[in-house]
Amino acid sequence: MKRDTFGAIDIGSNAIRLLINYVERYEDGLLEYKKAAFVRVPIRLGDDVFLRGGVSGAKAEALCDAMQGFAALLRAFSVRAWRACATSAMREAANGAEVVELIRNCSGISVEIIDGETEADMIYAAGGLKERLDPSKTYLYVDVGGGSTEIVVYAEGRKVEARSFRLGTVRIFSGAESPEEWTRFEEWLREVAARWHPSGIIGSGGNINKLHKMLEKKSRECIRAKELTALYNRLRAMSVQQRMEQLYLNQSRAEVIVPALRIFTEVMYLCRIDTVSVPRMGLADGIIHELYRQYGEE
């Protein structure tokens, strides 16, 4: 058995995450990805960016503090390779390049700002879903983040369409989304439904993972539309404080879980889809898998 250690940093609109994985390869070719460390810091960059257009000094300072800690952990675990990627909030921040330079100067970590389609492709590949899906059917891969939602259409075993929308949980909670973007979202989904007739959704993101757990689903079991709709109606009738107290959610999750439910239920309704499967993979997992393909197979 051979073991490599890889690290991934996901700088999202709601939280930043560090994942360190051991990747073990056995003589028979079997691969195992084992979590060595995971740290999540809810900095909420989207609060600044979606309302004011840039990252504030206070958020930038908190981001640097966290990244310095992440850099120390990467060194402590002696990772073979690592990669840091930033998504929607940093894509839209007027001072995004300045913040990237600040992070590099304070921590030594170089951050890449990636587009929505790249983000979705990396998460999808991490789940190993291509080998498990029925090539005769069409699926929607839906990744709901803090600042944006990425949707990829897979038909005949390949990607045929992809679109990114400025509809994310932090953006919606902050009231920073536009009615025009909702219209664009709905019109495109109706076109996709008419053209491709998707039969299922593959859900990605911290909120759908949390919902999967709240509904006490077994690994890889699907969530049905009626279950999500019932949970959406229940949670949106509660205040943030009630969600925290009654459902034991932290404040950040209690604020953004209802916007996430809104997006998923809209996709299911507009495309007439009854199930969401949840592989419980995120961007950090996708980065780890890509790093292994680049370095671990050498």
Score class of each variant (00 low, 15 high):
M1E: 10
K2E: 11
I16C: 10
R17W: 01
L19G: 02
Y22A: 13
Y22K: 12
E24H: 05
E24L: 06
E27N: 04
L31W: 08
L31C: 07
A37S: 10
V41Q: 12
V41K: 13
V41C: 07
I43D: 00
R44D: 01
D48A: 05
V49H: 02
V49L: 05
R52M: 06
R52L: 03
S56L: 09
K59A: 15
E61R: 12
A62D: 12
A62F: 03
A62I: 01
D65C: 09
D65N: 14
Q68W: 00
A71R: 10
A72Y: 03
R75S: 13
A76W: 02
F77R: 07
F77A: 09
R80P: 00
R80I: 03
R80F: 03
R80G: 14
R80W: 01
W82I: 00
A84E: 03
T87S: 11
T87L: 11
M90C: 10
E92G: 10
A97F: 03
I103K: 00
N105M: 15
C106S: 13
I109G: 11
E112M: 05
I114T: 13
I114R: 14
G116F: 11
G116I: 15
E119Y: 01
D121H: 04
D121V: 14
A126G: 02
A126E: 01
E131P: 02
E131A: 15
E131Y: 02
L133T: 15
P135T: 12
K137Q: 15
V144M: 00
G146M: 03
S148I: 13
S148A: 13
I151N: 10
V152Y: 00
Y154D: 08
E156G: 11
E156K: 11
G157F: 07
K159Y: 00
E161C: 08
E161M: 13
A162F: 14
A162K: 08
A162I: 12
F165S: 05
G168E: 04
G168S: 06
F173S: 09
G175E: 02
E177A: 13
S178I: 04
E181T: 15
W188S: 07
W188V: 08
E191L: 13
A193D: 06
R195W: 04
R195D: 10
W196I: 00
H197G: 01
S199D: 05
S199K: 10
S199H: 04
G205I: 12
G205A: 11
G206D: 08
N207D: 08
K213G: 06
M214Y: 08
K218N: 08
K218E: 09
S219H: 10
S219T: 14
R220Q: 04
E221N: 13
I223A: 01
I223K: 00
E227M: 01
A230I: 05
Y232L: 15
Y232H: 14
M238K: 11
S239Y: 12
Y248T: 09
L249V: 09
L249A: 09
A254N: 04
I257V: 15
I257H: 02
L261G: 03
M268P: 00
Y269F: 07
L270M: 06
R272I: 09
I273Y: 07
S277D: 06
A284D: 08
I287K: 05
I288T: 07
H289S: 01
Y295N: 05
